[in-house]
Design a protein around this nucleic acid. Structure first.
Lengths: 259, 259
DNA sequence: TTAACGCGGTTCATTTATTGAACCAACTTT
DNA sequence: AAAGTTGGTTCAATAAATGAACCGCGTTAA
């Protein structure tokens, strides 16, 4: 029961690491008859959800996926869903947070949710670019983003913002190693003195970070006894945002954040 | 025959202007039985391609569309398809072209295809930002992009690059009116002296421009007798790129470009 | 050289899920 | 209060999905 669903379920066998599949292999994967799978594929090909490479005869996701996503995005923008999710995180933790995305090779702020629980808050310009070496978000991106970013760090001159800013590539590489173990990153006055940040990556479909979320708060509120709650909220938040943006969390990513 | 296809075809009734549809209305639109439509919707809802608003009971495109598009994009990036299409346009016309997208409120170059037919060519930095008042692409975007761009033009100071640059908002508004009639825009040395550009918009799903394509050539090759061929190539190119990026051309857009 | 095996795709009798008219119950409009 | 919506259900009739066997082709192994 549910022929259409059976057809759609075939799409789940495609992934970033297995972007195209042959008829027999797909039938094997789905545990279904080749004739059945073929008819389903043909139906979806008619609609454009599936595309067959005429040379290799392999099947892949078709262009209709783009159309539908554009439609979904117009009616239900991912940024709106992200804002909603971030607002509940703000309620839980009580601190401001911001969402950034890697565009070309700079980390652009896309969304800022300010805390309503404190009158003293970190104010963030939504048009600001996050320096990659001076913010928790930037370090997270260096750790989990495209490897090209890291190599680029060597050639570019790193800007210092405060006396805390990391400007030595070797220092940063060491920091990245601890981030890779923990999953989360933090910064303490490295961009603006007195501001503490906690960031986590948001992954794309290929399990490479496409952006980051971060909590930002005055140093005096970043106490050790608040840290566990912040980290728990940050972890589930990063997981949910990754889902909202259609991404996949790599297997190597920690299943929980620990101080 | 093709139940899965019939189910998928329901998705085509959703659009930017009709993002959610009730059961009865969708059955009427599709000319199918309510029971049939309901079962199809439930199948697709299971998969996540459809989402029902629990309050209004209306149906809309679901989050799986985002996932699938991310998959498609990873395996078959739209920029690659765009580059291919632009390369054939370059072969047809023999001139360099570039593709730009509106990001936040600046026009970022995303792709440059240089001509292989001339040794004298306009060289474009792929990281460059297109000034909105000084390039054919910028004017096209002002005309067909988000209305907010136009109102912003009044508050910001417009930069002059050459003696040809338009810096008076009233002048630009007049120019936009002729672009709206023609569909295409051009520039003659307004960014760099001696460079002539022809641009057309690329539309999003909501029929608002999300980017532009433009041919750029030395002034002396922008002759009247080459213009018709350039404009024909530009029109089909803009149409194809709009399709590649999942957009829709507005009904009011000219079906052909005339000098 | 040949046999075995894999592939994508087809065929067709059997079966099973799809279909659609009629029908609810709950609202709105007239 | 009657008539028309709506979303959703039921079930007998039927049309479409299914799967084992098969085909032709190319690759691999004997």
């Amino acid at each position: 029961m549910g022929t259409a669903l059976n057809a759609l379920k075939l799409l789940d066998f495609f992934s970033a690491s297995r972007p195209e599949i042959g008829l027999s292999q797909l039938a094997r994967l789905a545990g279904a008859n080749k004739a059945t799978v073929l008819r389903h594929l043909r139906s979806m090909e008619d609609f454009g959800l599936i595309e067959q490479n005429p040379m290799t005869k392999f099947y892949a996701i078709g262009p209709a996926a783009i159309r539908l996503a554009a439609l979904r995005e117009a009616a239900n923008p991912r940024l709106d869903a992200a804002r909603l999710r971030m607002q509940t995180a703000m309620q839980e933790v009580g601190e401001s947070l911001h969402l950034s995305f890697l565009e070309k090779d700079i980390l652009q702020t896309a969304l800022v949710v300010e805390t309503t629980k404190h009158t003293v808050r970190v104010s963030l310009d939504p048009t600001e670019v996050m320096p990659i070496n001076a913010t928790a978000s930037g370090l997270s991106m260096l750790c989990y983003g495209p490897p090209a970013l890291k190599s680029q760090m060597n050639t570019d001159q790193l800007q210092g913002f405060t006396k805390e800013t990391l400007t030595d590539p070797d220092q940063i590489r060491a920091q990245i190693e601890t981030i890779r173990r923990r999953g989360w990153s933090n910064s303490n006055g490295s961009y603006e003195l007195g501001v503490h940040g906690f960031a986590a990556p948001i992954f794309g479909i290929d399990r490479v970070a496409i952006g980051t979320v971060a909590f930002a708060m005055p140093e005096n509120r970043a106490t050790d006894n608040r840290k566990p709650a912040i980290l728990i909220a940050l972890h589930t938040l990063a997981k949910d945002l990754t889902a909202i943006f259609g991404g996949q969390i790599p297997d190597s990513f920690p299943p929980a954040f620990h101080p």
